[in-house]
Amino acid sequence: MKILLNGKLYNRDEAVCSVMDHGLLYGISVFETLRLYDGFPFLYKDHYLRLSSALVELGVKCPFTDEDFIEMIQFTAYSNELNQAYIRVTVTAGIEELGIPYGEYHSPQVIVMATPLKQTRSNKKGLIPLNVPRNTPEGYQRYKASFINNRIGKRELGNQPHMEGLFLTREGYIAEGIVSNIFFVKSGILHTPSLETGILPGVTRKFVMALARKLGIPFQEGLYKLEELETSEEVFITNSVQEIVPISFIQNRIWDKHPLSSFLHGEYKKYVYDLNSYRNI
């Protein structure tokens, strides 16, 4: 694997960061994961916006524009001879002395990785409620940064690739999956947990809601207890790599039909190769 580090390509074992990087010392770093379709990083502007907004909150100078963002991604994928890929872009605070500064970080480090897709969309998954609750965001909203809560949830779930763990808030409201957002259908209405629950504002979540609006599918964001999910007509999860995945069971409830998620996924796939998809919906 070739990795793009601060604009230069390195072999995997040669791409190294300083032990004085505040991304390592204090966890001051953010990242985005997205999917490359025939060389095109789908919804890259939305990913860029979320990343750059996180950097503003952390006081880290964003070192690239949205045009630079797509160029870095495509160059890294091309250098690895990949046309379909899983992309990760990480920005760390950069090298500083010990101690958390009150001012801005002006020398962030940028790491871009492109790897083959080991797994694309699953036909369906099971959903397992986790005992560990979803923690609240450390800032005003959740960004793709610290994954400690996700790590604890993943350890609880264990090695079950066809399962997704479901976080509830401390108040018992449905939050999100370990690496996904949650949707369910009840009385013909599409529902998804509100950002008030502290979930990640997923790029695919946002796109699915926009797609539902365009298609005239009624939807609501809200605070929902687990019982709402268990008595729903259909459940599915979303993320940028796996797209839209139906949920086949949760606890004692089984779903064998997924008409809306199948329909939405078919509509979703119409946009993934369209350079203007983010403008057309």
Rank of each mutant, 00 (worst) to 15 (best):
N123H: 13
R134P: 03
A93D: 07
S79H: 09
V132G: 10
I148T: 11
I95G: 02
L82G: 14
R142W: 11
Y102E: 11
A85N: 05
E156N: 06
R151E: 07
E138R: 01
P129R: 13
N135K: 04
V132C: 15
R121V: 10
P116A: 14
Q109F: 08
G139S: 13
P63I: 10
N150L: 08
K118G: 15
R121E: 14
R134F: 06
E96R: 01
N131F: 13
N123Q: 11
I111V: 10
V89W: 03
D66L: 00
P129G: 15
R142D: 10
P133Q: 11
L58H: 06
T120L: 13
N150W: 10
G153Y: 09
T120E: 15
Q119R: 14
L55D: 04
I100Y: 15
E156L: 03
K118E: 11
T90G: 05
T136P: 02
V132I: 12
P137I: 09
Y78N: 05
N83G: 12
A145G: 09
P161S: 13
G158E: 12
L82C: 13
K118D: 10
Q84T: 14
T92L: 05
N150F: 10
T92D: 07
Y78K: 07
A93L: 03
D68E: 09
I111Q: 05
Y105M: 07
S146R: 04
T76V: 02
R155V: 05
G59Y: 15
Y143N: 02
A54T: 00
K61R: 07
A114H: 07
Q84I: 09
Q160R: 00
L55H: 01
P101R: 15
V56C: 09
R142L: 14
Q84R: 00
G59K: 04
R155N: 10
D66C: 00
P63E: 12
D68N: 00
K125E: 12
